[in-house]
């Protein structure tokens, strides 16, 4: 078996204020091509874990290796090189609302494009081509020049996915990408992620709230509780007892189709 793509070793994150332990000694490995789903209650550390992987948040201790390279030690240009091959999709899309769809998508290329021209808003021709293709993939070509805030939630998230596509990502981090969307739209967004996973070979780590979606899309599930890994296994292994362990005694499973 090949070496794992991502190795997280004993990662702990303590927020200075109020000494909150967001992550407690989290260790996990992710192989190339997996669709790993993170589940757990709000505040269980899913977002923090995802953000430690691309260092939007500094872990307090521990190591994270991506393709054998220590992400936690990377600085400056090296860190940017690591980040540019990790796509990220956010719960609230994180688009620049006043900018056009095209400009938002092109921004996904900032890690690759020569930086001086980008400062006056210029991108190489092939990047603009690529932006067209990305928007075609998510079916939003005709909205190219529309302002991002004119789009519906689902469309905005598709722009977010097109932006991530621009990075030709080897790994995609999705932080509750469908929590702000209605169930039908949620499914279509996750299908785009699945498509990137299957057709482009991008590994996906996706935090989700609904277990039904986790079961449907995940090839493996990791559950966090109070910042620690409490379950790791296949989707079908989560039975009622396990569910209560992760979400607490009072929890009831809600179906989302």
């Amino acid at each position: 078996m090949a070496a794992p793509q991502l190795v997280v070793e004993h990662v702990t994150k303590v927020y200075e204020r109020g000494d909150v332990h967001a992550l407690r000694d989290v260790s996990l490995t992710v192989n190339r091509g997996e669709f790993l789903v993170l589940i757990g209650l709000s505040g269980s550390g899913k977002s923090t874990l995802l953000r430690c992987i691309n260092r939007l948040i500094e872990p307090t201790s521990g190591r994270i290796l991506l393709d054998g390279v220590d992400v936690t030690q990377a600085k400056g240009a090296e860190l940017r090189r690591i980040r540019r091959k990790i796509g990220m999709v956010f719960q609230h899309f994180n688009l620049v609302k006043r900018s056009s769809v095209l400009r938002n998508v092109l921004a996904g290329r900032l890690g690759y494009a020569p930086s001086m021209p980008t400062l006056i808003g210029r991108f190489p021709r092939e990047d603009v081509e690529r932006a067209h293709q990305s928007l075609e993939t998510v079916g939003l070509v005709e909205k190219m020049y529309t302002r991002a805030d004119q789009l519906s939630g689902g469309q905005q998230q598709r722009v977010g996915i097109a932006r991530a596509l621009m990075q030709e990502p080897e790994l995609i981090l999705a932080d509750e990408p469908v929590s702000a969307l209605d169930p039908a739209t949620a499914n279509s967004i996750l299908q785009y992620l699945e498509q990137m996973n299957r057709e482009r070979g991008a590994t996906v780590i996706c935090a989700l709230h609904f277990l039904s979606l986790a079961r449907r899309y995940g090839t493996r599930i990791i559950a966090l509780k109070d910042g620690a890994v409490v379950f790791e296994g296949l989707p079908r292994e989560i039975d009622n007892a396990r569910f209560k362990e992760i979400y607490g005694e009072d929890a009831e499973e809600v179906e989302v189709r």
Partner: peptide, 8 residues
């Protein structure tokens, strides 16, 4: 956050 994440 998003622009930082793409390596900007």
């Amino acid at each position: 956050e998003a622009i930082t994440a793409v390596g900007g």
